[in-house]
């Protein structure tokens, strides 16, 4: 099964503890269940008409307090020492800045290269410096058994050393808004030479691991209208269509000049969408919500140029 896929040393460390606890748990559960069923049958009213009034047994109480205590402590110790290994990055690890935002991931490598999926060389330690620019997110790679929360104004770290080439899911695990379940990415683990070719190659160096990547949503921004390119890159189109199709948020088609009801602190007001309103909607979406849509739009940092492009593009949709 897929979840048995151990693709990093951390996965081996985590699974070793898991199977230790799992084995003990199954033994305990079977023991208790069989004993319960046996007693219910053996000491049924029919077979055992007169109950014996046994008030307790101090020796037994001590035994069944201390044995679980010792086992639980062994689980704690094993879990803790393996976690120490999983959380302490070796010094030679390559540090990658992981940035979470509603609702996407981005990765920045020591030499300044950036990517939307995480590229990692096989068998080399990679340190993740995870942070968020808005709300709390969770950075999770199931095949590596690794997770660390992405907090605003705080950098959390974890690390991994991949043991198998391939493409593995990255998922957000902390509820962060309407498109929480679409906040996905991939780790692409490739042989070191392939990684180096991309890492040290110039702007045009091809991204590694093409063979692992099926037709992913990785839109080619070349050749799009500048405004549309911004909308695509920032993930706006997840909620707003440009062709009139209803989605979570209002469609951008024929939006300019349209009359909308907006809510300012709960009070409805009818306005006509113009340049100024568009800008305010985009830069401060929670200030004035459009009636009939969930108040879910995250604030997105846009440069003045990007904002101009977007507004110009929306005007062309009329």
């Amino acid at each position: 099964m897929d979840w048995m896929n151990q693709a990093a040393i951390s996965a081996q460390k985590s699974d070793a503890v898991f199977f230790y606890v799992f084995g003990l748990s199954v033994a305990f559960l079977i023991f208790i269940t069989v004993l319960m069923i046996y007693f219910v049958i053996r000491y049924s009213k029919k077979r055992h008409p007169k109950a014996e009034q046994i008030e307790g047994h101090v020796g037994l109480e001590i035994v069944w307090t201390s044995i679980p205590l010792v086992l639980f402590l062994s689980i704690f110790y094993y879990g803790w020492t393996n976690y120490e290994y999983m959380s302490q990055a070796p010094r030679d690890a390559m540090a990658v800045k992981v940035t979470a935002r509603q609702w996407s991931w981005s990765f920045e490598y020591p030499n300044g290269k950036q990517s939307k999926v995480l590229f990692a060389p096989l068998g080399k330690p990679m340190k993740m410096e995870v942070r968020s620019v808005d709300v709390v997110h969770g950075f999770f790679i199931p095949s590596f058994r690794l997770k660390i929360d992405a907090m605003p104004a705080r950098t959390n770290t974890t690390w991994f050393q991949a043991t198998k080439p391939g493409s593995y899911d990255i998922e957000c695990t902390v509820i962060c808004g309407v498109d929480h379940s679409l906040m996905l990415s991939k780790v692409i683990v490739v042989p070191e030479e392939e990684f180096k070719a991309w890492y040290f190659g110039g702007e045009e160096a091809p991204e590694p691991g093409k063979s692992f990547r099926t037709a992913e949503a990785h839109p080619d921004l070349q050749g799009l209208a500048p405004g549309l390119a911004v909308l695509t890159a920032k993930g706006c189109l997840a909620c707003h269509s440009v062709d009139g199709k209803p989605k979570v948020g209002p469609t951008l088609k024929a939006l300019y000049g349209k009359e909308e009801q907006i809510l300012i602190a709960g009070v409805a007001k009818t306005i006509r969408v113009d340049d100024a309103y568009l800008r305010r909607f985009i830069t401060n979406p929670m200030d004035q919500q459009v009636r009939g849509y969930p108040p879910a739009m995250p604030q997105t940092a846009l440069t003045e140029q990007e904002l101009n492009d977007v507004v110009r593009y929306i005007k062309t949709l009329n």
Partner: peptide, 21 residues
């Protein structure tokens, strides 16, 4: 018992980082 035992699994740090959330 199943609830408690799965709780112990999560209490172990190395397992928790996988199953958390």
């Amino acid at each position: 018992c199943i609830g408690g035992l799965t709780g112990v699994m999560q209490g172990a740090l190395a397992v928790n980082v996988h199953v958390h959330d």
